[in-house]
């Protein structure tokens, strides 16, 4: 059985208390809002993507639980300097990690320290908290014009 400590790792508590890259990015080339209607989490992500499809900068603001805040904070750290193609690979790997079978190991080559969030798969009602920021960035990049939802 997974314990609470598998979910609330020190890194996650640390990012909850002091989220990195928190705030508005001005100017930015892409932005989008995300909502988790189940628990009221709200997120706004801002991206500056250059002509070569490189994410130069990324920030987020909003309010949410520890898992959604820490996930967004970790995501912004890792996305800086990555290409949009990189993002798409990581999006899939992250999604797989959050919804994988218990025994599957996360793809640490792709995910790096994001693997710290692997514990959410043991907490089904919390998976959407972790994936909200990724869906929101995806919708910002795709310029969907619609808020991202976890549903």
């Amino acid at each position: 059985m997974f314990s609470l400590g598998d979910l609330y790792k020190e890194v996650i508590i640390d990012h909850t208390k002091a989220p990195r890259n928190f705030g508005k990015l001005e100017p930015c080339s892409h932005d989008a809002e995300g909502f988790n209607p189940l628990c009221g989490d709200q997120l706004h992500v801002y991206l500056q993507i250059d002509d070569n499809n490189i994410i130069e900068d990324v920030k987020f603001e909003g309010q949410g639980c520890s898992i959604s805040t820490a996930s967004a904070s970790l995501m912004t750290q890792i996305l800086k300097g990555k290409s949009v193609a990189n993002f798409n690979t990581m999006f899939s790997a992250f999604h797989d990690m959050a919804t994988a079978d218990m025994d599957d190991k996360p793809d640490e080559d792709v995910l790096g320290k994001l693997a710290v969030l692997a514990g959410v798969k043991e907490f089904p009602s919390r998976i959407k908290c972790a994936t909200l920021c990724w869906h929101t960035v995806k919708s910002a990049i795709e310029d969907a014009g619609q808020p991202a939802k976890t549903e």
């Binding site: 609470l4 009221g40 639980c65 009602s125 919390r126 908290c129």
Partner: peptide, 26 residues
């Protein structure tokens, strides 16, 4: 310092079932 959603998860592991959310009254 503790979001209601995190409280819900932590309390559940102690056997305590509460509701965390907007209670359909946004």
């Amino acid at each position: 310092g503790v979001h209601p959603h995190d409280l819900g998860t932590i309390l559940d592991r102690e056997g305590v079932a509460i509701r965390a959310g907007h209670h359909c009254a946004m």
